[in-house]
Design a protein around this nucleic acid. Structure first.
Length: 485
RNA sequence: GGUCUCGUGGCCGAGUGGCUAGGCAGCGGUCUGCAAAACCGCGUACAGCGGUUCGAAUCCGCUCGAGACCUCCA
């Protein structure tokens, strides 16, 4: 198993700290707005990692936080954080905002068949842990208090540790490149970052601390909660590439100082989803919410795309590549997914041909595993699954015979990869199968009778009528089958 | 301006120093009452210019183009 480690910018052999156990922390959403397509990418990427490690037999503790404090906005309202601002504008308790969007986030993730993490800690529930960590950093001499806020002393840290180890930044470049921001007079250097921020009297999210009322700096929560649930050093930390600097860089610095060792062995970063070649982001105003996509309710959408189409679309690109949104690409994904899922239905109905020559299904399975073991290359694994689809359909058409062993291997391969590892699922789940099956059987029977009489007007009337309900009939040698479009 | 990444056929997207990625779309055929689905066959792609090499789309250099980060961001 090889993982691309952002720290070394190389693929490295994965060796867990504790054999057969994986500790993984992933930066979750800031719950002040609906989840957009961009949020789906890390959720699905690390869901894939989570699922694959579990499939391999690892015991995984997967921690993904909910950010519900901090994240200062620097532009419009100085020193206010996102959730507080949203709450004030909508006349709500901050925790009402948090609850509302957390519930909606969970709904979207469930739709995408993203498994819930092992632990989903809220930053607001770990203020004490964050304060304790700040104390440790102060005690170690790597932070200073200034007017009720506490800042991390980047320059001092850089004398003994490489600040910029993750992002490739150099401290002297930071000096010349940092923009003028308010509150800098409180800092010794412009690139020092707040680990505790004083709350002004109007700030509605605030907690008492040894330095006065305030709230934790925006990198603290991940350091504190990662350490609490996964230990001072853990295996994998994931998140979007846009978090590399300063968020993850600062996390490394804080944790290293507080605990005396670097916190993470393997850093994994998913790339961005782009729209017309540009990053999709809430602050850029070009983000599409997942609900928009699922309902087709957006000017750029030619149609609605189902959650599984989105999931498959994302899995068809490697997580470290940018992925450009377009209707064409999504429509292709929709059809490809359908083809895979339909082949899985088909393979279950195939009859084995005893004595048929072996088709070397093991080679396909091996290709799937090799792909996953090579930095979770889901696109390669999917390409191999299409090889399997070819065999299944050929067998279904009678061009190919599958011996019992091959057939069993194919069934397992499809089931394991499509559902357990890639986390796909058939989308018509939820309809009343028993009733629908019965109705369809009757309708198809009537149509069959009409066709036998060569009454094609009637048979086409039935087929067209069903087509309006998105039910597609397929006349095959073994009779007529149907599927929901 | 600094740091970094990328540029693959109509579209999306893997991969790699010599052996067909794959999906979608398209064309021809088989099947079908007609379709749909499926199957068979078809496309000589790797930004440009140099260099290394027996051989490069794959390595190196330059040029052009795009993007990310440097400020909250998945």
């Amino acid at each position: 198993m090889h993982i691309f480690n952002s720290l070394s910018r190389k693929k490295e052999v994965f060796l867990p700290i504790h054999p057969n156990h994986v500790g993984m922390y992933v930066c979750g959403p800031t719950v002040y707005g609906d989840a957009h397509l961009g949020h789906a990418r890390p959720a699905i990427t690390f869901d894939l990692v989570f699922r694959y490690f579990r499939h391999l037999g690892y015991k995984v503790r997967y921690v993904r936080n909910i950010t519900d404090v901090g994240h200062l906005e620097n532009d419009a309202d100085e020193g206010e954080d996102k959730i507080a601002r949203k709450a004030r504008l909508e006349q709500l308790e901050p925790m009402e905002v948090v609850q509302y969007y957390t519930v909606r986030y969970h709904k979207n993730m469930d739709q995408l068949n993203v498994l819930r993490p092992s632990i989903e800690p809220h930053a607001s529930g770990h203020i004490i842990e964050q304060i304790e960590m700040i104390k440790k950093i102060l005690a170690a001499g790597y932070a200073y208090e200034s007017d009720g806020s506490v800042y991390f002393d980047v320059e001092k840290y850089n004398q003994t540790h490489p600040y910029g180890i993750l992002s490739g930044r150099k401290i002297d470049e930071l000096i010349s490149n940092t923009r003028e921001l308010s509150g800098q007079n409180e800092k010794r250097n412009s690139f020092d970052f707040a680990i505790w921020k004083k709350a002004d009297p109007t700030h509605i999210m605030r907690w008492p601390s040894p330095w006065g009322d305030g709230f934790p700096g925006w990198h603290m929560e991940c350091s504190a909660m990662g350490c609490k649930y996964l230990g001072e050093q853990f295996d994998i930390h994931g998140g979007g590439m846009d978090l590399l600097f300063p968020h993850h860089e600062s996390e490394i610095a804080q944790s290293t100082v507080a605990n005396g060792k670097p916190p993470v062995r393997y850093w994994m970063h998913n790339n961005m989803i782009t729209l017309n070649g540009q990053k999709m982001g809430k602050s850029l105003g070009n983000a599409m919410s997942l609900d928009d996509i699922f309902t087709g309710n957006h000017p750029l959408l030619a149609q609605a795309y189902s959650p599984m189409t989105i999931r498959f679309f994302i899995l068809q690109a490697h997580y470290r590549s940018t992925l450009d949104f377009s209707n064409e690409a999504l429509q292709a994904a929709e059809k490809g997914l359908k083809k895979l899922l339909f082949a899985d239905e088909t393979v279950k109905k195939l009859k084995p041909a005893t004595g048929a020559a072996s088709q070397n299904i093991e080679a396909i399975a091996k290709a799937c595993y090799d792909a996953m073991n090579d930095d979770f290359s889901s696109p390669m694994a999917i390409a191999s699954l299409f090889e399997a689809v070819k065999l299944i359909n050929a067998a279904n058409d009678g061009h190919l015979k599958l011996n019992p062993n091959d057939l069993e291997l194919l069934k397992q391969l499809m089931d394991v990869f499509l559902f357990d590892i890639l986390g796909l699922r058939a989308e018509d789940a939820g309809t009343d199968h028993h009733l629908v099956e019965g109705l369809m059987e009757t309708i198809i029977g009537l149509r069959q009778e009409a066709r036998a009489r060569k009454d094609f007007a009637t048979s086409d009337l039935i087929r067209d009528g069903l087509a309006k309900l998105n039910i597609v009939l397929k006349d095959g040698k073994e009779g007529t089958s149907w599927e929901m479009k």
